[in-house]
């Protein structure tokens, strides 16, 4: 990032800026979803876009996730570049056939003839007191499917650059935004820039332990790293930024350097992103590891409503700090 950048934007503003710039650049880009136009979504991420681009390009749909995602696939195949908005990540379940059996397979099944340059934007993350059907982080589901790409920005800077890449990509891309992060501020250049997929970002360099963290868990890992500093443990924090394509090389190299790794991701721990990344590291850095790779994810329970219950379901700065300290055998 250029040093001169002073301007700060929230995560939501960065997403909006990426969309607005891409819509100005390319008239084929359009947005559809529930309450995306005048309402600008319940999170207000899209406010102002309909005023600039009109209801022809920022289109309110009925509450029909499967239907309008399907329209997105067909529109993408035939010349538009739709950005489909799924309000809560929990609702991706309604779009599964469109994404998994249609979008992901069209290019391959047609022998490379049809393409689906479509983006699905949706959310993840708990602790908003929204209970079991509005709090899940289901990005592992799409990461499992060949033909899809999955993006997990963790800063306003990454959000803008990665969303632009997503819109310009020729494939279906799912872009997960942590809804608790919309108000997070950070430096964002006003000019056009993109961030390539499959390139992890070292958010903080360190020597004793690697914390691989995604999306909402990057801030948690950075907080834990600060706490670890105080007890003399130097933690490296790496954000893969995309779960597919996955920058295996950077993850393995860091593991080889530090010899200890914790993978932190807000999805369910079982059969999830942490399991995949841990196995990539175990396979790639086995002889350099001083401990088994540890995984930390959401507990294997539906996310409960009561704050005292909900807060224990996801990793926190403190639990990551404790786990790292134990792994480094320093108490």
């Amino acid at each position: 990032m250029p040093e001169a950048v002073q301007r700060e934007l929230t995560f939501a503003q960065a997403v909006r800026e990426a969309l607005a710039e891409e819509m100005r650049r390319d008239s084929r880009v359009c947005i559809f979803g529930e309450d995306v136009a005048e309402a600008g979504t319940p999170f207000k991420v899209l406010s102002g876009l309909v005023e600039e681009f009109g209801t022809e390009r920022v289109i309110d749909t009925p509450i029909s996730e499967a239907g309008f995602t399907g329209l997105g696939v067909g529109a993408a195949m035939t010349g538009l570049r739709p950005v489909v908005d799924i309000m809560f990540g929990d609702f991706i379940t309604l779009t599964m056939d469109q994404m998994v059996n249609q979008a992901a397979k069209v290019h391959y099944m047609s022998g490379g003839k049809w393409k689906v340059p479509m983006v699905m934007r949706t959310t993840l993350g708990a602790t908003r007191r929204s209970a079991a059907q509005h709090s899940q982080s289901l990005h592992a589901w799409f990461s499992h499917v060949p033909g899809l790409k999955v993006v997990l920005p963790s800063t306003p800077y990454d959000a803008k650059g990665l969303l632009k890449t997503a819109i310009r990509d020729e494939n279906p891309v799912v872009f997960f935004e942590d809804k608790m992060m919309y108000k997070l501020k950070g430096p964002v250049p006003a000019e056009d820039y993109t961030i390539p997929f499959g390139v992890a970002d070292v958010k903080r360099a360190g020597d004793d332990i690697t914390l691989v963290a995604t999306s909402s868990m990057v801030q948690v890992a950075l907080g834990a790293a600060t706490l670890l500093d105080e007890v003399g443990i130097s933690a490296e924090v790496i954000d893969p930024r995309t779960t597919w394509p996955l920058d295996e090389k950077t993850l393995i190299e860091s593991a080889k350097k530090t010899s200890r790794v914790i993978v932190v991701d807000e999805g369910y721990g079982r059969y999830g992103v942490t399991a995949e990344i841990a196995s990539v590291i175990a396979e790639g850095a086995f002889y350099d590891l001083d401990a088994p790779v540890k995984r930390m994810g959401a507990m294997h329970v539906p996310i409960p409503f009561s704050p005292v219950l909900e807060d224990v379901t996801v990793p926190t700065e403190h639990t990551v700090f404790e786990a790292a300290r134990a792994l480094c055998r320093r108490s």
Partner: peptide, 28 residues
């Protein structure tokens, strides 16, 4: 599937292409 004849593809999911066809109409 065959772009040269406007064929967006046959689909083995029952009703699997209704969204695609409607999306193509949106593009048109």
């Amino acid at each position: 599937a065959d772009p040269d004849t406007g064929n967006l593809g046959a689909n083995a999911i029952v009703a699997g292409s209704v969204g695609i066809a409607t999306g193509a109409a949106l593009s048109a």
